[in-house]
């Protein structure tokens, strides 16, 4: 994308209008990543803004040999991981509020205009149960289709680490689905009981 290269090089020289173009082009993917990582629309909006501020102050470190999209998403991933680490350091009571936030009916979430409401809620719940380091690889893999090599570079780790995180994440998700299925079944059989009596 020639236009994008031009924006980047102009922005590197301090051109704010060019940087605005980059924000316009990448706010959606960055926001989606932040929302999937943090699970909260307000925090995602804040994280998106901070990601672009960080990117602007580090533009001189950007290597044009790489895709700008993976560079900006790498900054966003690190920012969200930092936020989750900080969140973990807060009080337990706050953690309780956080898990309450994952409940579907609190307030409209960005995906709720879509039809498959329940599936989207399930996606959100499953992601929320994964440790941040696993969550980030799942997001980069499923929403952005990055290869192990690209993810390793973005997260500054090895490909084998990515491979094992992705494997553990999938194992964990499989278990979570199994548990939710089992509780579903037991609930259904419980609900069915009075009717059959």
């Amino acid at each position: 994308m020639v236009e994008e290269e031009r924006w980047v090089s102009l922005a590197q020289k301090g051109d704010k209008e060019a940087f605005c173009q980059l924000i316009r082009a990448y706010q959606a993917p960055v926001y989606n990543l932040a929302y999937r990582m943090l699970g909260d629309p307000d925090e995602a909006e804040d994280a998106t803004q901070e990601t672009f501020l960080r990117a602007f102050s580090r533009l001189h470190t950007y290597d044009p040999g790489y895709k700008f999209s993976s560079w900006i998403l790498s900054i966003a991933s690190h920012y969200c991981l930092d936020q989750l680490r900080k969140r973990k350091g807060r009080f337990v009571s706050l953690e309780g509020i956080k898990s309450w936030r994952w409940m579907p009916d609190r307030r409209p979430q960005p995906e709720e205009r879509f039809l498959q409401h329940e599936e989207q809620v399930a996606v959100r719940r499953i992601l929320s149960k994964l440790p941040p380091q696993y969550r980030v690889v799942v997001i980069l893999r499923y929403w952005y289709g990055y290869s192990y090599e690209e993810m390793a570079r973005m997260l500054e780790t090895s490909q084998s680490a990515i491979k094992s995180r992705l494997h553990r994440a999938r194992k964990m998700m499989a278990k979570l689905l199994q548990v939710s299925e089992e509780t579903q079944v037991s609930k259904e059989s419980r609900d069915a009981l009075p009717a059959s009596l």
């Binding site: 706010q27 959606a28 993917p29 926001y31 989606n32 929302y35 999937r36 995602a44 909006e45 998106t48 960005p110 995906e111 879509f114 498959q116 599936e119 989207q120 399930a122 996606v123 499953i126 799942v138 499923y142 929403w143 999938r170 194992k171 998700m173 499989a174 278990k175 979570l176 689905l177 199994q178």
Partner: peptide
Amino acid sequence: MMLAADQLLQGAERVSP
């Protein structure tokens, strides 16, 4: 279960700000 999780995630939406 892994396949089910995979399918669920494949169908997940991208959200916009």
